[in-house]
Design a protein around this nucleic acid. Sequence first.
DNA 1: AATTTCTACAACCGCTCTGAG
DNA 2: TCTCAGAGCGGTTGTAGAAAT
Length: 292
Amino acid sequence: MGRSPCCSKDEGLNRGAWTGMEDKILREYIRVHGEGKWRNLPKRAGLKRCGKSCRLRWLNYLRPDIKRGNITRDEEELIIRLHKLLGNRWSLIAGRLPGRTDNEIKNYWNTTIGKKIQGHPFSDGNRKPPKQTQENPKPTQPPKVDTNSCTKVFRTKASRCTKVFIPQEAQNLDDQIRDDNAHVSNNNAPLVAVDQVTDQVAGIEEPLSSVFPLDDENSSCEFMVDFKMDENFLSDFLNVDFSELYNNGNDEGGSVASATTCDKVPDFQSSSMVPVIDYDLDWLIDNSNTAH
DNA sequence: AATTTCTACAACCGCTCTGAG
DNA sequence: TCTCAGAGCGGTTGTAGAAAT
């Protein structure tokens, strides 16, 4: 799209580190006027900064509820578990760590945890990395989470959504649900329209249809089906390739039939099934401790 | 003491999503 | 339905300071 940039580079705007005076101005302005309208904020506040930069400075540094100081061991463990579940979705992870910002967690991951998990020999308290040599080159960035390949990353977008419906009827579903919210499936789970499920976990309303983009030609790669997780499943969930899970568990009983970002999974566009999930991230996080 | 190397993290960049008009 | 501004997100870069040589 032909959007104008947030701010052009030759407007004589300040760049780089913020000064104490700039921080003070920004803090005071937000105290009086509140957050928002970031684009206009610099002009109104008399700051020679891009609005985006002001927003970032506020969110990552000046906000009064920011927790300064080192990441604790508990926080680190939680970050690791959440990353296992969510991948590089830093804002969601940060949402679970009061006072921590997505940027902080992202940095911490890239500089500390990612290296530990990669098994660097200096991970056990020895701060110094191995000397760089031809055989031992500088470590690269932690591997990106490839959401288009087989992975154990859980693409969470709903807190609790249960039941299946048939796509041919999907057009009518909104009306059905509006007309009769008491729709009950054959196992007494409520019928839920895909686009009505929201992300209660993250406190963000987001249509599930954006997570499972059924009209996208690649959508067969991103789904979960008939999710019912017990503790045994969770253990599998955190350790097993989802494509295998699906292939082994795709029985009519539907006790475990699940998959995630993998091209081995069935194509729901051509089948009569639609992704259904039934999980609770709070529960998942709490129980992922004991799942190994 | 000077220089080089490395780390941590603040800040930037480009992209996507959302909602208003 | 379309366009665009506002906002948010995740990846990347820049740099100050510490540690090593």
